[in-house]
Every structure is written in C-alpha cells, then in structure tokens.
C-alpha cells in the first residue's frame, strides 16, 4: 500500500519540426514524372493525322495495351499495337520511350508493383524483338497507384491493367 515514486520517466520532446520547409525533403520536389502519372499523356503535340507526330503514336497507333487478370502475356491485339509502336519508333529514332506498367486495384500494393513491372517488361521485350534498340527504352511500374478508370468494376479494371508506352524526345534531338 505504500506509494513508491518510481524513477521518474522523463520523456523527450519529440523533435519533429513542423514540416513547412519543402527543401528538407531533399531532391525530388519537382516530380520526375516521365509517364505523366496523372494520366497517360506524355508528349501530345501534332495532329493525329500526321504520322510523324507523337499524337499519331498515342492515338492512331495506340500507346497502351491491356492485360488479363494477373497476366503479363501479350494478346494478339496487343502485339498488333506494339508492332505499330515498334515500326514508328524505328522510323523516329529521335524519340525514346518509358514503358509504364499498371495493375488494377484488386491486389496488394507491392505485389501489384511487381506485376506492373512484369507487364512493362513484356512490352519492352516485344519492342526490342521488333527492332527497337533496348537503350531507347526504360520501364517503370506504378502498380495500382495510377488508375485511369475509377469505378470498382470489371470494365474499369480492364482499362487499368495496362502498359503505356510514353514517348519523349531523346537527348541530342
């Protein structure tokens, strides 16, 4: 029943400064966002009827291909689109591309990141097989972080399971 003052527990003040200085976060404040992470835009100048324009690549050839659930295998439709992408890239060597892999929301975050990387890699391998120099291509996965369709239904999931070829003018062009 005695009251025994135990050794006083001294609590350090949490030295968490208010985070109002963005510089403290180090590099990367400017979002390096090669894929236009808030959409699949990329370079969009020119007319979709001008075969030399990025707009033609994005809209007429098609900058994206889709995948089945959990799959990274290319469908016949995807191969047709990618063959067109490869021909365009071979004919326009001043452009490089980053291939973004994406997943739908029906999966855990880190698995979907790895799954998106598989998809991007499938596209990269196919483009290389069609004559595009591997040095012009890079892959990145966004997993389920950047859906383009926001409903929670198969028609949206189908759109989100995708790989997008985002072209940009390479160095020296």
């Amino acid at each position: 029943m005695t009251f025994a003052p135990k050794a006083a527990v001294l609590l350090a003040v949490l030295a968490l400064a208010a985070c109002n200085n963005p510089n403290k976060y180090g590099a990367g404040n400017g979002v390096v966002d090669p894929g236009g992470a808030y959409g699949d835009g990329g370079v969009t100048q020119g007319s979709i009827n001008d075969p030399n324009s990025p707009a033609y690549f994005n809209a007429t050839i098609g900058d994206k291909v889709h995948f089945l659930v959990d799959q990274s295998t290319l469908s016949d439709e995807a191969r047709t689109i990618l063959t067109g992408q490869a021909q365009w890239l071979v004919g326009h060597p001043q452009y490089n591309a980053i291939i973004e892999g994406h997943a739908d929301e029906q999966g855990t975050r880190e698995y979907n990141l790895a799954l998106g990387a598989r998809r991007a890699s499938s596209v990269q391998e196919y483009l290389v097989s069609q004559g595009v120099a591997g040095s012009r291509l890079r892959t990145v996965s966004y997993g389920k972080e950047r859906p383009i369709a926001v409903c929670s239904a198969p028609e949206c999931y189908n759109q989100n399971r995708r790989a997008v070829t985002v072209i940009s003018l390479g160095a020296g062009s």
Binding site: M1, P5, K6, A8, V9
Partner: peptide, 16 residues
C-alpha cells in the same frame, strides 16, 4: 479490497 501493485509516478514536459 486492496491496491494492485505499487503506486507510480511519472514526469514529462507538458508537451508530452
């Protein structure tokens, strides 16, 4: 009808 364990005293800055 009894105390369970000893009384304890703890101290910290007001912010904590």
């Amino acid at each position: 009808g009894q105390q369970l364990g000893e009384g304890q005293q703890l101290a910290a800055s007001a912010a904590s």
